[in-house]
Structures are given as structure tokens and as C-alpha cells.
Design a protein around this nucleic acid. Structure first.
Lengths: 150, 150
DNA sequence: CACAGACTTGCATAAATATGAAAACCTATC
DNA sequence: GATAGGTTTTCATATTTATGCAAGTCTGTG
């Protein structure tokens, strides 16, 4: 239910200007989905939506500019500084970085020499990380995500 | 006054996580700027700031991403202009381009932001495209083939 | 100076959003 | 089917944000 409702929210929000959670609630109701404002508030939070002050409309969030927070080891700092997005397919991770930052981040990853990391290939703003297993890829993906998002 | 206050707001918001207009009011006060929450609400609207639901932090709004139609067409032109060959292994596509054309074509692919495309890594005349599934890779392979051959 | 017109701000309050705590609901285990 | 542990949802309400309207400010004009 939750997933279904949340994707309906994304859909509604992408199609029209939605200014309040109550409006959203009514629109969902029209699609046969019942929920309270409280639930919708939490959905919006989980979906990472954003509310534009200019017109009060909800919108999908953009990639946030990385904060210059400096903590932890080198990989972590590099991730925080330049990782935009991480995607996983099976045992492969595709990392998107700020322009020109793929090489330094990949280098940091190589240096870390984690055993589950088989190797990396870096372009300008994309790194392909080959992991030994889908399982370990999933773990790394999550760790990177946590770091990137503060 | 207004301009000065608004630029102070932008500054504060870029330096730290500000979750409410009242916090902002206090921070402004600490800088010797007095204003009510009402005024700040109006400022935020004028500045076009955005409030992330995820953590309630205010943020500068991002630039809109261009429409998929436009970028999709760009990919087609890039393919017609420089794709030599496309090979597929499972969910991976290896594209061969004219010398030096890998980067621009990969860039166009990235911009298009097709959901099935997890990411790309480009060298000089070779691009590795990671697709979400072998199925979608097959479809893209065929599409590229059609485009490349006229 | 007195006044008009355009902006900006504060006040009071309406509207919208977030959240603690309890209830309802799931899922797996004995 | 009873129980534990987890997740999701609601209710009630606190917190936060927006806004109509009146007052204050600024600028140019006669």
C-alpha cells in the first residue's frame, strides 16, 4: 500500500501543481487511496520531495550540492565531496560524481583496497566499481549513500 | 535593508542547516538584522528557496532539467554522427565511436537520463553503458542500430 | 511642506505541516 | 492460534508558514 501510494504521489506531483498535503489527500482519495495528512507528510519526507517557496508547489528534489563536511577516512571524504549518485546492478556499482572528480574518487577507492572491491574503471564523472558479489555491492551502495547524504 | 537581509539569508542557508524561519530570525538578529517571521517568509518566497522534506532544511532551488524529448533527440544526433558499432553482453553495451567522440556521446546519453540506463563510462572511442537489465540493453542496442544505419 | 503612489514591514491569525504516542497491521516462530 | 518484534497508520496537537490588512517608509511632484 505504502509503495503504491507513494508512487501515486510522485505521479500526481509531476503532473500538476500541488500546494498542500490536503489537496494531495483529496487527489489520492479520487484515485481510491485513503490516507491522512500525517501519513502524507511522512511520505513526502521519505520521497525526499521539496516545497518551492515561490509557488508552494511540491517537487522532486534535485541532487543536493555536497556539503564540505570533513570526517573519516579518505574515501569517505572523497565521497562526501564529490559523489552525486550511486546505482547498483547485480555486483556492479555505477557512481556519478561531479565533473572531473571520478578519477580522484576511484583512486581513493583503489587505495582503500577493500577485498570485496575487484576493481574500478573511471571516466570523467562516472566510476564503474566491480564488486565480488551482489551482496557486497549492496552493502557498499548503502554505505556510500549514507555518506553522501550526510 | 531588504536586499541586505535577503543576501544574509542566502548566506546563512548555504552555511548551515536551517529548518525554520524562526531559527533564521534569531540568526539574523545575531547579525544585527531584525525582522519578523512574516517578513522572512516573504523573503524566502522571493529568493525562490526550497524546503527539503527530508530534513526540513532550506536550500537554493536548482535549475530545471531540460525536457527528455530534447535530450533524447540529442542522443539520436550524436549516434548518427559518431557511432560505429554497438556490442552487447548481458546488461552491458559497448559502443565504439569515431576517435574522440566517446565523451560527447556518453554525455548526451547521461543527459537523457533514461531510467534503464544506470550509467556510462567513456574513454576515447569506447563507451561502456550499464543497463538495468539485459532486456533493456537489447532494446537500446536495437534502437542505436536503427539510428546509426539511417 | 503636503500629498499621491509604490514598496516594505509588522500584527494577528489562518492555513499548512510535523510529530509523540497509541492503535492496527504483518510476519515469522513456537 | 498465541506471542514477539517490526512496520505502518491514525489521532490529537504542537510547530511552522502564509497572508489580509493597517501602518510605516520612501520618492517624486506641485
Amino acid at each position: 500500500m505504502k509503495t503504491y501510494r507513494q508512487s501515486a504521489i510522485l505521479d500526481l506531483v509531476s503532473r500538476q501543481v500541488v500546494r498542500s498535503q490536503n489537496t494531495l489527500r483529496r487527489q489520492l482519495a479520487a484515485r481510491g487511496i485513503t490516507a491522512t495528512q500525517a501519513t502524507i507528510s511522512r511520505d513526502i519526507k521519505e520521497l525526499g520531495l521539496v516545497k518551492r517557496a515561490a509557488d508552494g508547489a511540491y517537487q522532486k528534489a534535485q541532487i543536493e550540492t555536497p556539503s564540505p563536511t570533513v570526517t573519516g577516512d579518505r574515501v569517505r571524504r572523497a565521497v562526501v565531496a564529490s559523489l552525486c549518485r550511486a546505482d547498483r546492478v547485480q555486483q556492479l556499482l555505477v557512481l556519478k560524481t561531479d565533473p572531473g572528480q571520478a578519477q580522484p574518487l576511484a583512486f581513493a577507492l583503489d587505495q582503500a583496497a577493500w577485498p570485496e572491491v575487484v576493481g574500478t574503471v573511471a571516466g570523467d564523472d562516472t566510476i564503474l566499481v566491480v564488486m565480488r558479489t551482489a551482496q557486497s555491492a549492496r552493502i557498499l551502495e548503502r554505505r556510500l549513500g549514507r555518506w553522501a547524504q550526510g
